[in-house]
Amino acid sequence: MTRRVKYTTTPATRFTDSSFRFAARHSDNRMAVIPFHAHEFMEIEFVLRGVGIYVSDDAEYPMNAGDVFVVSPGGRHGYRDRDKCEVANVQFDPAEFLPHDNDITAVPSYHALFVLEPLYRALHHFESRLRLGIHDIVQADRLITGLENECLRKAPGYATAVKGLFTQLIVLLCRAYLATTAPAAQVLIKAGTAIRHIDQHCNEPVAIATLARVSGLSVNQLLRVFRQATGQTPHDYQIHQRILKATKMLRETSDAITPIAYELGFADSSHFSRHFKRIMGLTPQAYRRHAATA
């Protein structure tokens, strides 16, 4: 690991269709340096061949064939020696393309890889990153090529084809991460089990002792990993997930505030409204009015 040099942070948005925020490409490797930048979307970067340098907020790390980097929206990153490796990128709107309610989200490595690892990897000096074996590299490259072709050709039904191929890619990555033996990754997978439990019981009281038991971590380990990875306690994370559900209900239903509060597990409408305003900056009533006119 070496200290990174300073780069200019630059936004980058490269979707050709604003209504279908997905792109896949094998990147041009003629540029040795990719400036430090951030995206408003999620990105998965695959190192298919060769070596290079990944630049994060705190340091620079070597990247090798098989390395996979999930970059969350707003995550700042860059590259050096990019011309010495072959890289493929998949960029997408996570709200639209990441699975949220199918069986892959029940796999602990899903939450570990797509929620925790992007935030946690620098603390582990990249020891928690995913590295694919040669067979999985070939499979991933085949799927990315299929995604790239569908995005370029836009033949009838391409949106369905893209979502199908992308789901296969997500499953491949989750299975590979679940099989990793790196201690740092195993800790994140255990914490991912806690996140899955919260998501499955979001509207119910969830005791920290229960989360520690299902994750196989001590209470102190779980709290430390959770806070370092998400910036929140498990309870705060649960409240945020409830509020996200509330925004959808306020936009898409005419249900009154009090029934929404009770359905989401809040003690009363005042308790719900207080948390909603703290997180969203508006009262539930004001949010609903704003959503109706947006």
Rank of each mutant, 00 (worst) to 15 (best):
V70R: 01
N64S: 15
D81L: 03
Y61W: 12
I53A: 12
I53E: 11
D81H: 07
G75K: 01
G66A: 06
A59G: 15
Y54K: 11
G74R: 12
V70D: 01
G52Y: 00
Y79S: 01
D81I: 02
D67N: 13
A59D: 14
G52D: 01
V51I: 15
R80P: 09
N64W: 11
D81G: 05
A59F: 11
V70G: 03
G78A: 10
H77T: 12
S72N: 10
F69H: 02
M63E: 06
R80C: 10
Y54D: 06
P62M: 13
P73W: 01
D57Y: 10
S56G: 13
A65D: 02
G52F: 00
N64K: 15
R76F: 04
G78V: 06
F69L: 05
Y79L: 05
S56I: 07
Y79F: 06
P73G: 02
D81A: 07
V71M: 13
D81F: 00
D67F: 03
V51G: 14
D67E: 11
G74H: 09
I53P: 07
V51Y: 12
G74E: 07
M63C: 11
D57F: 07
E60A: 07
Y61C: 03
G75A: 03
P73L: 01
G75W: 00
V71Q: 13
D81Y: 01
A59N: 14
V68A: 02
A59H: 14
G66D: 05
E60S: 10
A59Q: 13
I53R: 14
V55D: 06
R76G: 08
I53H: 10
Y54L: 09
S56L: 06
R76D: 06
V68N: 00
N64I: 12
H77N: 11
V55E: 08
R76E: 09
G52I: 02
S56W: 03
P73M: 02
G66W: 00
V71T: 15
I53Q: 13
Y79I: 01
A65R: 07
S56A: 13
Y61S: 06
